[in-house]
């Protein structure tokens, strides 16, 4: 692992103090309703959630609780029926109205990790990370350097030239994490990232999230069913029937 100077050089952990005070994301009174009349389903009911920069939050709850709906709303790919989403202090969604170009915003400020790694099958591990940088206008050479740095940082630099098919599930998920971190996002959203992994690999990935969140000062929200590695989270939020429950007895590592 390289030192702080090297991480700073590659864009990790650079954040001015003023920005550190601003939450990574605020979801205020977010409601999501599907269908009309008798078929109406309230997936999210007046949900308010704030996640600070550098904070790692687990979102728990049974199936149908609204976790993924909340995550996709915060990922700006599923607009809420009402409520506001503020990312990095900027009002992004006000109800169904997008206040900015969402795709550009996602490119610059958000990172995503899913249950499946969702790597592009015709690109190598290195190129899967590099592509996220290049579409954000990073010159090819610099993108390649940073992608290689991230893969090294996540311990899979030696597999950089391999196609996803040739990587194990854990290695693929690390590539996905590297891709999520590529553009130094202020918020990383993960939807059951350990579901396809064994407990050891799952714990490694969760620890990885905690590590990168703290190093890069990004907010991390992880939707999970996996209660075996909850201690790595700073905060645990539970959902049921589209609402956030009151804070439970679960507590994470609690560094923030």
């Amino acid at each position: 692992m390289e030192g702080n100077a090297s991480r700073a050089e590659h864009g990790i952990g650079l954040m001015d103090t003023a920005m550190e005070q601003v939450p990574a994301i605020e979801a205020i009174g977010v409601t999501k309703v599907y269908g009309h009349g008798q078929t109406e389903v309230i997936a999210l009911n007046d949900v308010t959630l704030r996640v600070a920069r550098g904070e790692v939050v687990a979102l728990l709850g049974p199936s149908g609780a609204g976790k993924s709906t909340l995550l996709t709303a915060m990922a700006l790919i599923n607009p809420p029926t009402s409520g506001q989403i503020i990312i990095g202090g900027e009002l992004v969604m006000d109800g169904e109205d997008a206040k900015i170009d969402l795709r550009t915003f996602r490119r610059k400020h958000l990172g995503f990790v899913f249950q499946k790694a969702n790597l592009i099958p015709f690109l190598t591990a290195l190129e899967n990370v590099q592509v996220a940088l290049e579409i954000n206008d990073t010159p090819a050479h610099a993108a390649r350097e940073r992608a290689m740095y991230l893969l090294d940082h996540l311990g899979i630099g030696d597999r950089a030239g391999n196609l996803p098919d040739a990587l194990s599930g854990g290695q693929q998920q690390r590539v996905a994490v590297a891709r999520a971190l590529a553009n130094n996002p202020s918020l990383i959203l993960a939807d059951e990232p350990t579901a396809a992994l064994d407990s050891h690999r799952g714990r490694q990935v969760m620890e990885l999230f905690a590590q990168v969140a703290h190093e890069s000062n990004a907010g991390v929200i992880v939707v999970t069913h996996d209660v075996r590695a909850l201690e790595v989270f700073d905060r645990i939020v539970e959902m049921e029937d589209g609402r956030l429950l009151a804070p439970s007895e679960h507590t994470g590592a609690g560094t923030h």
Partner: peptide, 16 residues
């Protein structure tokens, strides 16, 4: 189609 959706999710412009 899945890869294209992913590219859009991570913010690829239409021209890409």
């Amino acid at each position: 189609i899945h890869d294209i959706a992913l590219l859009k999710l991570i913010g690829a412009r239409n021209r890409v």
